[in-house]
């Protein structure tokens, strides 16, 4: 697979939050604050990349019958590394993310990519898939958090920007579902519009190519006569 395809799949075409609807629990819980969303995204990128690399390296060693427990153990190891590092160097972020850091272990996105991609591809491709899926996850969470924090609290990164104005529902769980649903709808509508446009372009290009070929045949027949 080309790097461009892996990148586009991870960030746009197969966006884990808006398209595949994976990792919904942290997406809703952590997106109340932009700082938390970016922090969670960074943690997921690290775990995704490392677990994908290791799973890919061991893909011919781990028997199929125990691949899931093996993948979970590998993912849990890297999540523990992240927790230890956050506690040491980013204690405020660690405290803010709370139980959702350890819950990365059971984030469907990470196990799904290990099972569906890393276990069937080479290390380089697996690492890139982990990176771009993680970036897609981070961007999705950041967009949700931007909307929810701005409208729900009137702040961004804890700094007041709307002069005290806020719509409380966006900071609540109900608002989280609302924003999530609307963003999925917008994302699907946008990607459908783009693919329809691309299909039109492709159809027009094929038509033009057929016409050209027909004209070339007609011209060569006239020459022969």
């Amino acid at each position: 697979m080309k790097v461009k395809d892996i990148a586009l799949d991870g960030v746009v075409r197969q966006n884990p939050v808006f398209k595949l609807v994976l990792g919904t629990c942290p997406a809703l819980a952590v997106s109340t604050s932009l700082a938390n969303a970016i922090g969670m995204g960074a943690a997921v990128i690290f775990v995704l990349m490392c677990s994908n690399i290791l799973v890919s390296l061991l893909r011919n060693v781990i028997p199929g019958s125990v691949r899931i427990p093996a993948f979970i153990m590998i993912i849990a190891t890297f999540v523990t590394v992240v927790i230890l590092a956050f506690d040491k160097f980013l204690p405020d972020l660690s405290s803010s993310l709370g139980m959702f850091l350890p819950l990365i272990v059971v984030n469907c996105l990470i196990l799904a990519r290990a099972e569906a991609f890393a276990s069937a591809n080479k290390v380089g491709a697996a690492a890139l898939d982990g990176l771009f899926m993680g970036i897609g996850f981070t961007l999705a969470l950041s967009v949700m958090a931007f909307i929810r924090e701005l409208l729900g609290t009137g702040c961004l990164f804890g700094v007041e920007v709307l002069g005290g104005f806020s719509i409380g529902i966006f900071a609540s769980s109900a608002g989280g579902f609302l924003v999530y649903g609307l963003l999925i709808a917008a994302f699907v509508a946008g990607s459908n519009a783009i693919s329809a446009k691309n299909k039109k372009k492709q159809a027009a290009a094929e038509k033009a190519a057929k016409l050209q070929a027909a004209q070339a045949v007609a011209a060569s027949e006239t020459e022969v006569k």
């Binding site: 060693v61 781990i62 028997p63 019958s65 125990v66 427990p69 093996a70 153990m73 590998i74 849990a76 190891t77 523990t80 590394v81 230890l84 590092a85 506690d87 040491k88 204690p91």
Partner: peptide, 29 residues
């Protein structure tokens, strides 16, 4: 064989345990 499957799991568990015990010492607060 099932023995190989269990062996792999044990190796992964022991390796993870070793790495994490070292890191928890280094990153201890």
């Amino acid at each position: 064989t099932p023995f190989f499957a269990v062996l792999i799991l044990v190796i992964i568990a022991l390796s993870s345990g070793l790495i994490l015990s070292v890191l928890s010492d280094v990153l201890y607060v």
